[in-house]
Design a protein around this nucleic acid. Sequence first.
DNA 1: CGATCATTTGACACCGGTCAAGTTTTGTGG
DNA 2: CCACAAAACTTGACCGGTGTCAAATGATCG
Lengths: 237, 237
Amino acid sequence: MAYSERGLAAGGNARPIVSPTSDEGWTDYARSPRVKTNRYEPHQVVFYEGDQADRIYELLEGAVMLYKLLPDGRRQVVEVLGANDMFGLLASRAYDCNAETLTPCVIRVLDRKDAETTPAAQRHITRCLLAQMESMHEHAVLLGRKSAFERVSSFLMRFVPGRGIADCRGPAGAGRDDALIVLTMTRQEIADYLGLTIETVSRVISDLKRRGLIAIEKQDRIRINNVCGMCHQTGAH
Amino acid sequence: MAYSERGLAAGGNARPIVSPTSDEGWTDYARSPRVKTNRYEPHQVVFYEGDQADRIYELLEGAVMLYKLLPDGRRQVVEVLGANDMFGLLASRAYDCNAETLTPCVIRVLDRKDAETTPAAQRHITRCLLAQMESMHEHAVLLGRKSAFERVSSFLMRFVPGRGIADCRGPAGAGRDDALIVLTMTRQEIADYLGLTIETVSRVISDLKRRGLIAIEKQDRIRINNVCGMCHQTGAH
DNA sequence: CGATCATTTGACACCGGTCAAGTTTTGTGG
DNA sequence: CCACAAAACTTGACCGGTGTCAAATGATCG
């Protein structure tokens, strides 16, 4: 039995594990006997590309990345998922990606057949897919058309809530316009997500620091000193 | 009234316009009074990014591309769709891409609300989304990690049915292993799809020709002389 | 405090972009 | 069917942004 399964079986601690954003009776689903909720450690593999795909997953807490490998070892992280995202969804019999946690995670595991035959589940899944599809489109632009600077800037802006989107309301008040973001990915993971090398990511971050746009408080805690200024580095404005 | 709408309103010609691959009563949907079927010319815009998204589209015949633009004019084609694909699906209120026909097309136009409330439509939409998501993952690998040669080779292999997939059965018979493919995209569109410039696409194609892997019969008709050989240029083997 | 791993920095090479001709193909009108 | 113009594509020369390889520095954890 995997650690993650024991984790909850034993788990007497009362932390709620039901998704807060339940829409239209979706969480009724969780009452099914075939639904389990598991805890995962950081950097634990949820499934491998090619595995028989008879389960689908709902990420309740934490962050998960999906990635694909080329035979020579090149890796591309194709999606980074957050709370309430679903994954392991597919058209074919086998998963098309590897799924690995970035942080400690709480993940609900559903039987694929159940999910496919429950209308409420269907709606929820479709909604997730639509949102993920939009992210993929945006990411295709990043991978196909943006420079290394723009890629890293776009990546950092992802973590500033409410900013950098189409209708960005600009800085909240007058004066300073900064934000602290906490990275859950290593430089290597960021590089594999942005289609760059680790060295290039590192160089761009150092350069942004040198130019005063950001400050590195800890390796994984970055302060953006001028959110608006950073936004103009993304290529989207 | 747009040309495309008149096209069918007047259209007395008896060409069948119902999708051949109807699953589980999905085509019942087409009987709704709010469903129209339109014809489009090549390079006609179906909708623009930012347009109010109250319709969804089902491509019955032809090919459509979805693309996004950056403010400075850089373009990324994010998806190339074929018969039975659906598009204009979204999470948000406005389309996130531009949609433009590549060839003459027959497109069924559905009311978004209708589609959202019809279970059979839901299933069909979800199925399309799942297939499109897998393509997007594959394309992210191409954009993020493949060389220009690998990108163009992968692109060409897309058009050889049954080959280049995971379980490629290899050449059908003994002896020659060639295939003729007909491109529906210009070099510029291919470049914008593959995240390259038109010059690089042209150079790679010329090089493949020089090395005898392909032959250009007409600008848009390319013969792959050695499908297996081409496949090994894609980076996937 | 030392070992290990992650990250940064430097030097250099090369792939693919840019700019600028050519050349071929397509379309139009006579 | 031909002549011409416009568009699409190809080719060449050059350069710059990223990748590669190697070493130094910094973080983490026993």
